[in-house]
């Protein structure tokens, strides 16, 4: 199963890097969101420190929707999803492969967004320890988001207006379980509060990432059943 998932993820990334259609959309969109926040808030509103965690996660989640949507809609548009279903490997490996490729794409855009945030907000993200904790929060939050998002993207693949249906279904699932703890943890990591306080949020993010991924592995076969 892992080798099949890796093959699918490698194929998705190879196809994406060749055209860069989704990646470019995500990068442009993330810059636009960060700039919107930059111009919307001034030093008088509390400045970058106040909005940085929310701005980052709104950018991550909304840009991430592009990757999730494209992951299955490309297969649908080219009618290639059936060719994946015709292969002898376990069908959950399709889920894992799609999840992995989306995770890598989104993580790349997240790195870019953090740098863009530092530039446009003239924001100092601090030393290596702070960045390491930020990386832990970002990776766990992204894992949970991609875990549930990939399943929902597969569910909405055959629906009309799938680009609308995906955020409508995913956002309510991740608002309280991923976005809120991630924003809180990011604020703590970037703020004055001690990083030891971030443990509760990290545990919550880890728990929901595991819950979503395990649930998706159990449900994926039924979701793609005709």
């Amino acid at each position: 199963m892992p080798s099949t998932a890796l093959l699918i993820a490698a194929k998705d990334l190879r196809a994406e890097f060749r055209t860069k259609r989704t990646l470019n959309s995500m990068l442009i969109f993330s810059v636009m969101v960060i700039l919107a926040f930059r111009f919307a808030f001034t030093a008088g509103d509390g400045g970058p420190a106040m909005v940085a965690p929310s701005a980052l996660w709104i950018t991550f989640i909304l840009a991430g929707m592009f990757a999730l949507s494209a992951s299955f809609s490309k297969e649908k548009d080219q009618e290639t999803f059936q060719s994946l279903l015709l292969c002898p490997g376990s069908r959950t490996s399709i889920y894992l492969g799609k999840m992995l490729s989306s995770f890598i794409l989104i993580t790349m855009v997240e790195l870019f967004s953090i740098v863009a945030m530092a530039v446009f907000f003239e924001y100092d993200f601090g030393g290596p320890e702070r960045l390491a904790w930020l990386a832990v929060v970002v990776v766990l939050g992204t894992l949970g988001f991609v875990g549930v998002g990939t399943l929902v993207a597969a569910m909405t693949m055959n629906t009309q207006m799938r680009e609308v249906m995906l955020p409508v279904l995913v956002l309510p699932l991740v608002v309280f379980t991923i976005i809120m703890p991630a924003v809180t943890a990011t604020a703590k990591v970037l703020g004055e509060a001690g990083m030891a306080d971030v443990g509760a949020e990290v545990r919550l993010l880890l728990t929901f990432a595991l819950v979503y991924i395990i649930a998706a592995l159990l449900l994926f076969d039924y979701v793609i059943e005709e």
Partner: peptide, 27 residues
């Protein structure tokens, strides 16, 4: 089994040989 439909089930962004390698490795 092998399946051929009126739709080719191949990836447009990949080359001809990359498509065949991908499916061969999946099998």
């Amino acid at each position: 089994i092998g399946v051929v439909s009126h739709s080719p089930f191949v990836y447009g962004e990949l080359t001809v040989e990359e498509n065949l390698r991908f499916f061969g490795r999946l099998f």
